Each structure stands twice: as C-alpha cells, then as structure tokens.
Computed example of a mutant assay.
Amino acid sequence: MTRFLLHERRRLAYDRIEGEGPGVVFLGGFRSDKEGTKALHLEQWAQDSGRAFLRFDYSGHGESSGDFLDGTIGDWAEDAAAIVNALADGPQILVGSSMGGWISLLLARRMPDRIAGLVTIAAAPDFTEDGYWAEFDEGQKAVLEAEGQIALPSDYSDEPYVITKRLIEDGRRNLVLRDPLPLPFPVRFLQGTEDEAVSVSTALRLLEHADGPDMRLTLVKGADHRFSDSSCLALMRQVVEEV
C-alpha cells in the first residue's frame, strides 16, 4: 500500500515491506516511477524471501508531489536520502536503475555507513553533463540559455524530454566521475550491450573510476536500457542476493 513521507514540503510516495535485513531500496530512473517492472519484480522477491524492501517516487515523479520540471539531481538525491534515513533500518542494499544509479552513487558518497551493498543497472552517472550538455549543438545551448529549457524527443515516451537549465547547472554540482569515488562495500554493475541510452563505455568508465574492494561489472549481450526481460530480471535478483 502506498504511503507518503513529508520532507521539506515534499510529499514522497513509497511502498515498504518489512522483513529481515539488510533491506533493499530501489531507486528508479529519470521520469520513471516505483511501479516499474524491475521495482515490482524485486518487491515480489522480497516478499517471497522475507526481506525488507522499499521503493519510492522522487518529487515530481509518479505519485509524489511537485512538478518534474522543477526537479534536479540534487533534489532527487535529497529525496532518496530522506527516504532511507526515515524508513530504512540499518545498512541497506541500494539498487539504482539508470539515473537511480547516479543517485545511489551520491548516497554512497554522502552516507556510506548506511550502505551494505550497491547494485546498479545501466547506471547513468553525470548524464546531464556528459550526455545532454556534451551532445547539444550551439543552437540548442542558445535555446536552453534563452528559454531556460529545451524539449528533446524520447525513445521511451510519446512525450518529449524537457531538459531545464537548472537541471544542467545542478548536475554540475553533483558529478561523481571527476573526483574520487570510494565504494567500500560489495558493488555489482549491470549493463546491456545494446543499451542506446547508456553506453558500455560509460559502464567501463565507472568501473575504472570507482574504488572498492569488491566490485564487478557484468555485460549482458543483447540487453537494452530497460533490462527487463526474464533473464535480466533473474540476473538482477541474483546479484542482489550476492551482495
């Protein structure tokens, strides 16, 4: 049953299952929500296994309050930290999908003592800078500067992605691939080779940049950004159990 956490005038929607620890927290992607295939699959696994589990919507996403266009990486990382601090007991296993991978890395930097392990799926660290901004031409950058936002076509929705100047500027304050990134707990990165949103080179860059005693990258041939067919879901479940 969906409940709500009030945090700094934000009403954050979440679903929680009580169970044994370490608990698992699912962090969704850009414009995604807590009702996605991977989140629901892990919730069913948690129910069957007696494990604590938590999924939630960032502000401006799903059932949470707020306008998506007002949100930034820093805001959504703050949402995630508030959810973990208020609702999760003890160290947690974070499972971050796409942008949720970036958010989970920010939490790892902010609160490493609360993390028992980390699993990312098509992690997209620094995508506002290395993806959107780096690929904008001069005309698009001029539109963003003049209008404060720009609409881009989406491969995953009929509606365009609207990228705001505030999102880009805030992203620069939350980059994780420019400074040391210690991950002192078990880490598993999962990446599909046919992912058109996050490249294999991004996964390799993250693996090379991060520092930790138990870190592995698994490439799945043919898997796309959704990473949601039966074999991908089984692999995700396997590595969550492993860490």
Rank of each mutant, 00 (worst) to 15 (best):
T2E: 11
T2F: 06
L6K: 14
A13Y: 02
R16N: 01
I17N: 03
E18A: 14
E20P: 00
G21Q: 10
G23V: 08
G29T: 09
G29V: 08
D33A: 12
E35K: 10
Q44P: 04
W45M: 13
A46Q: 05
D48F: 03
D48I: 02
D48A: 15
R51Q: 14
L54C: 11
R55W: 04
Y58I: 08
Y58H: 10
G62A: 09
G62Q: 11
S65K: 03
D67W: 05
F68M: 11
A77C: 12
A86V: 04
D89L: 11
G90W: 05
S97Y: 08
S97D: 12
S98K: 05
G100L: 03
W102T: 01
R110T: 11
M111R: 04
M111E: 13
G117S: 10
T120C: 14
A123D: 07
A124W: 06
P125I: 06
Y132P: 10
Y132M: 11
W133C: 02
Q140K: 14
A142C: 07
V143S: 03
A146E: 15
I150F: 09
I150A: 05
Y156M: 13
K165G: 09
R166H: 04
L167N: 01
L167G: 01
E169W: 08
D170G: 06
G171L: 05
G171D: 04
L175D: 00
L175P: 00
L177K: 02
D179C: 06
P182G: 01
L183F: 02
L183N: 00
P184E: 12
P186Y: 01
V187P: 00
D195T: 09
A197D: 14
L204V: 09
A210F: 03
G212N: 01
M215C: 11
G222E: 03
G222W: 08
R226T: 11
F227C: 03
S230M: 13
S231F: 12
C232Q: 13
M236H: 02
E241G: 13
E242R: 05
V243G: 00
V243N: 00
